[in-house]
Amino acid sequence: MMQRSHADLVARQSQSPSATTALAASWRRSLLKHGLDPADRRRPDRLPHHELAERRQAHERLLHVAAPQLDQLFNLVCLSGCNVLLTDATGVVLDQRVNDADAAQFRDWGLWQGADWSERSQGTNGIGTCLADGRQVTIHRDEHFHTRNIGMSCMDAPIWGSDGRLVAALDVSSARADQTERYNRLISAQVAQTARAIEAVFFRASFPDARILVASDEPGEAAALLAVDRDDLAIGATRAARRVLGLEREGALRPRPAADLLGRQDDLAGFDKAERAAVTRALARAEGNVSAAARALGIGRATMYRRMARLGLGGK
């Protein structure tokens, strides 16, 4: 009876023009756009083993850098009957952490590797709605679209790739019937923090030969990181940095001088900046020894001193 009333409630709210919350919007998408039935009790579809292996291979670098973060998150929530999941951008579960004692329940729910938890497939749920909206969400028990999912609570955060596009969702789902919304908020905060950490590590791994700079010191929910090559050109930026600096929202980044983006000003221009950078690097490698730096640059010591004076550099 309770399940039938839930299905009726979802159907009414989904079709009500006065329902304007984000949850109602998701229910409406599930019912009207995706044509789902809230009373449908079928488990989520699961990919065949070979297809899941192919997806994992395609996301090998992400899975590699995320693994320690998933382990750490699971260590924090495992005693409260939680399952930690990492999906791709389509909502397919690629990796998970779960206690043996809780595995049967989560497997029965379909919260398992290879399962499709997109909103298109399962209606409103933590993973699918997080990916559909591109934001952190908590879907608590009867906020789920399908009646078969109302026994779980799901806390999710998106993970953005080095190209500014959505690449994954991080999910913690609870099997406990006594899970409170207050406790969900604590877990949700930890999920968001872990998602940001994965995003930052993944960004660094995507630009192994670049210097990584913090593009903004303003407090925020995500790291604003900039990847800079050996010519001091910005060649990559996290989604947060793209937003802060007004760069392309997603896709390849048009190389720009990092100093221009970060608002660093000096009195030099053009080739003088490049020369100063080259002289500074040579001095640093020679630990300030002008003669050794001059030899490294292939110029005489006197010439080196003249250039240093013109460029406003000192030495010994």
Rank of each mutant, 00 (worst) to 15 (best):
277 A>Y: 08
38 P>N: 15
196 R>K: 06
304 M>F: 05
61 R>L: 07
139 I>T: 12
172 V>T: 08
54 E>D: 14
114 G>C: 11
72 Q>V: 02
33 K>F: 05
77 V>M: 02
53 A>Y: 11
246 G>D: 05
210 A>P: 05
286 A>D: 02
115 A>M: 07
113 Q>I: 10
42 R>Q: 14
251 G>A: 07
234 A>G: 08
267 D>C: 13
26 S>W: 15
234 A>I: 10
202 F>A: 01
116 D>E: 13
135 R>F: 02
162 S>R: 12
143 E>Q: 15
67 A>Y: 01
32 L>F: 04
162 S>F: 02
54 E>C: 05
115 A>E: 07
9 L>P: 01
26 S>D: 15
273 K>A: 11
302 A>S: 13
277 A>L: 07
41 R>H: 09
239 R>L: 08
185 R>E: 03
200 A>Q: 12
159 I>A: 03
243 R>S: 12
66 A>S: 11
109 W>R: 13
81 G>S: 07
283 L>T: 14
142 D>L: 01
187 I>C: 03
205 A>F: 03
229 D>F: 05
188 S>F: 00
175 A>N: 10
163 D>C: 03
141 R>L: 07
89 A>L: 06
162 S>K: 13
222 A>P: 01
147 T>Q: 12
120 R>I: 02
267 D>W: 08
57 Q>V: 01
275 E>W: 06
17 P>S: 11
167 V>H: 04
125 N>Y: 04
97 R>W: 03
139 I>Q: 09
248 E>G: 10
274 A>S: 07
87 T>M: 09
106 F>E: 04
275 E>A: 13
